[in-house]
Amino acid sequence: MVKSSFIKPCKKNILYKLIFKEINDLVLDSIPIVSILSFFIGGVVSIQMALNLESPLLSKTLIGFATRQSVILEFAPTFISIIMAGKVGSYITSSIGTMRVTEQIDALEVMGINSLNYLVFPKIIAMLMYPFIITFSMFLGLLGGLLAMTLTGVPSEAYIQGIQMDFDIFHVTYSYIKTLVFSFILATVPAFHGFYMKGGALDVGKASTQSFYWTSIIIIIVNYIITQLLLS
């Protein structure tokens, strides 16, 4: 499927339009949900860290440090990707699946248009913007943590110092490598479930559920493999 989506491309001007539309639908439209989740989960993570680091022997900077590590290494790239498997994945599966059920994909094929290139390729390219969302999520997660600590009474200087403590740029690189792999999974697995679905309107819903199920599982397994390869 992926190979076929790269061959027999549509006209350039049409592809550009489709890619920009997909960037809007898949990436920009996801910013509100990602913002809310990141901000509040960042806050919750920092409160839980503070709860577990109550000993006076432990520095308060450790709260910022632990929050940063959780957000950058795992929460932003993986947790948000699972959320996106539901939001973006079900959108991709249901929109392509509905086109399959209503014979719109057949209409494209009859016209001699490579339907995979028309429908799937722009989504793969648009999802290359996905790291932008994850960057946003990292920033808001840390900001949420800062706000939660300020409200809890932990000095913000200690939290900010903690965020900067023992910073390893490779952790961010690792996070972005994961994000790029997840973006490809998020575009292709749901597209596969939508494109090759059979049946009627009810089956579109079933395909969306299956798509979320498999996308989440693949993300979790790939997350483990990448972590094993890069961090162990």
């Binding site: 509905t98 209503t102 014979e103 719109q104 057949d106 209409a107 009859v110 016209m111 001699g112």
Partner: peptide
């Protein structure tokens, strides 16, 4: 085969218009 498809038009049972 692509060229012959360009010579074909199809009216689908459910119209298959792009929503």
């Amino acid at each position: 085969k692509i060229n012959i498809k360009k010579e074909m038009g199809m009216v689908f049972q459910g119209s298959a218009l792009f929503d």
